[in-house]
Simulated assay, not measured.
Amino acid sequence: MRGYLAGVAAFGAAMALAPAANAGVDEVHVGVMAHNICVTNCKNADKEDGPNVEFQVSFDSPSFLNWAGSPQPYILASVNVAGETSFGGVGLEWRWDFAEGWALEPGIGYVIHNGEVDNPFANGTPEAAAFFEEHVLFGSEDLFRTSLGLTRDFEGPLEAQVFFSHLSHGQILGSGRNQGVDQLGVRIGYQFGG
């Protein structure tokens, strides 16, 4: 429940901040992501349905992050339309232009979610086995989000991305189960002042 409320709060904050281009908002992304697919974490793929609809607001890089390559802070909400794992969070994204109109955008962030953390049934029971077959067990309500976008800039303020993200606690934010989720999809971006 905490993750769901955080996702709703992040979405509401993002919606409120999006029009405020003069307040440091650099760009807004909206996308549709295939949820829980086999990219880096195939053992748990397809346990959850999807897709997830994502909304992200990215801010101008503050000067105190110049030493780190001037990443852009972001806030995001990702809502699963099938009622599976939704999440909201914050993070940093870098942008590396590698050709005219093309860029790679790697990122790292922190999210909280409303998915399953542990199996509520006793180990070895048929109920536990059935629950395990149908649910991703994240092991922590707090997760890291790593991401990579391939961005194509268009004339004017619009851009399009093929976007990948992975959620996991990496045995750092939690203990025990460390089943993660991969997402892959497309996002459309609007660049303020672009």
Rank of each mutant, 00 (worst) to 15 (best):
residue 3 G to E: 06
residue 9 A to H: 01
residue 11 F to L: 15
residue 14 A to V: 04
residue 15 M to T: 07
residue 15 M to A: 12
residue 17 L to F: 03
residue 18 A to R: 12
residue 20 A to N: 13
residue 22 N to H: 12
residue 23 A to W: 07
residue 23 A to S: 11
residue 26 D to C: 02
residue 31 G to I: 06
residue 31 G to Q: 06
residue 33 M to Y: 10
residue 34 A to T: 08
residue 36 N to R: 02
residue 39 V to H: 07
residue 41 N to A: 08
residue 41 N to S: 14
residue 41 N to G: 08
residue 45 A to I: 10
residue 47 K to M: 10
residue 47 K to H: 07
residue 50 G to K: 02
residue 51 P to K: 06
residue 51 P to L: 09
residue 52 N to M: 00
residue 52 N to I: 00
residue 52 N to E: 05
residue 56 Q to V: 01
residue 56 Q to Y: 00
residue 58 S to T: 06
residue 58 S to H: 10
residue 58 S to N: 11
residue 59 F to I: 00
residue 59 F to P: 01
residue 61 S to R: 02
residue 65 L to M: 14
residue 65 L to G: 15
residue 66 N to L: 11
residue 69 G to K: 10
residue 70 S to R: 12
residue 71 P to Q: 04
residue 71 P to I: 00
residue 75 I to R: 01
residue 81 V to G: 04
residue 82 A to R: 10
residue 85 T to N: 02
residue 86 S to W: 00
residue 86 S to N: 04
residue 89 G to F: 00
residue 92 L to P: 09
residue 92 L to Y: 04
residue 94 W to S: 06
residue 97 D to H: 13
residue 98 F to H: 07
residue 99 A to F: 13
residue 100 E to S: 14
residue 100 E to N: 14
residue 101 G to L: 08
residue 105 E to M: 14
residue 105 E to Y: 03
residue 106 P to K: 10
residue 106 P to I: 03
residue 108 I to M: 11
residue 109 G to S: 06
residue 110 Y to K: 10
residue 112 I to R: 09
residue 114 N to G: 05
residue 115 G to S: 04
residue 115 G to C: 00
residue 115 G to M: 01
residue 116 E to T: 03
residue 118 D to T: 06
residue 119 N to V: 08
residue 122 A to S: 12
residue 122 A to I: 04
residue 123 N to C: 08
residue 124 G to A: 11
residue 124 G to R: 10
residue 124 G to Q: 09
residue 127 E to R: 10
residue 127 E to H: 10
residue 130 A to N: 13
residue 131 F to D: 03
residue 132 F to P: 04
residue 133 E to W: 14
residue 142 D to H: 15
residue 144 F to V: 00
residue 146 T to D: 02
residue 146 T to S: 08
residue 147 S to V: 08
residue 147 S to E: 06
residue 149 G to C: 05
residue 149 G to T: 02
residue 150 L to Y: 14
residue 153 D to T: 15
residue 153 D to N: 15
residue 153 D to Y: 14
residue 154 F to W: 15
residue 156 G to V: 05
residue 157 P to D: 13
residue 157 P to R: 07
residue 158 L to K: 12
residue 158 L to E: 14
residue 166 H to V: 02
residue 167 L to M: 11
residue 170 G to Q: 06
residue 171 Q to K: 13
residue 172 I to L: 12
residue 173 L to D: 02
residue 173 L to Y: 03
residue 177 R to Q: 14
residue 180 G to N: 00
residue 184 L to Q: 05
residue 186 V to W: 00
residue 186 V to M: 05
residue 190 Y to M: 03
residue 191 Q to T: 12
residue 192 F to C: 09
residue 192 F to T: 05
residue 194 G to C: 03
